[in-house]
């Protein structure tokens, strides 16, 4: 089987949220001795790019994006053991978390899905994260970027406290900060001293790329 054909099918299964199809085409990839990393980047990640566009256009909502991510993960699990690891390349690391008090961490999870599928290394601190944990994680993993999201207004002040804490720890200039989520704005991001703002998860990949461009 032609590898371009397989990549196209992998992408389509991700867009359609078709877990069984994703499993089948991931197995085909292995069977045909096609490079697993290439299948992830040119098949699955391409599919997630389309999903992200559909989400941005308001055609896909959270359930559809989650189902697509779920299909992608089915294929990734099959392909992962076959990736030839390049020990010299160090991927860009992003620390994600939701500060205490927001009942929703769904925005952050969508960002994680998008960043994962684009090949970044994501350290997910989860939700209800004590502020100190952000600083600790940045130091520990040598992260280049911190991402925080809020869906409810109650979380927003917590974002500012994380920025302030990084400043007081003398770590602010070592890491870029991006925020996003429904109640946030570019103006808000600037006012708390963050570096970038995304309207929703679909913008995360572009933002991390531009923040870390040398």
């Amino acid at each position: 089987m032609d590898k371009e054909e397989i990549f196209k099918n992998l992408a389509k299964c991700v867009v359609d949220g078709d877990e069984e199809g994703a499993k089948k085409w991931a197995e085909e990839t292995i069977k045909n001795n096609i490079d697993a990393y290439e299948a992830i980047m040119k098949g699955l990640a391409e599919g997630m790019k389309v999903v992200s566009e559909l989400y941005e256009k308001g055609e896909y909502y959270v359930p559809e994006v989650l189902l697509s991510a779920s299909a992608m993960n089915v294929a990734v699990e099959i392909l992962k053991p076959h990736i030839k690891v390049d020990k010299t390349a160090k991927p860009i690391t992003v620390v994600l978390g939701v500060v205490e008090g927001d009942i929703h961490d769904i925005g952050k999870n969508l960002v994680k899905i998008m960043l994962d599928s684009a090949g970044f290394r994501v350290i997910d601190l989860g939700k209800d994260v004590p502020l100190q944990e952000f600083v600790k994680a940045v130091k520990e993993h040598g992260a280049e970027v911190i991402g925080m999201s809020a869906l409810m207004t109650t979380t927003m002040p917590g974002m500012k406290r994380v920025v302030d804490l990084l400043v007081s720890e003398g770590y602010r200039d070592k890491v870029k900060i991006m925020i996003g989520g429904a109640p946030t704005t570019m103006e808000y991001a600037r006012s708390i001293g963050a570096d970038s703002w995304g309207k929703d998860a679909s913008e995360a990949v572009g933002i991390v790329r531009s923040l870390t461009a040398k």
Binding site: E100, G101, D102, I103, K127, D128, M152, T154, T155, P157, G158
Partner: peptide, 12 residues
Amino acid sequence: VHFPDRGNPVTI
């Protein structure tokens, strides 16, 4: 449920 110092309670 967890009760943070500031913010809504969070289901854990």
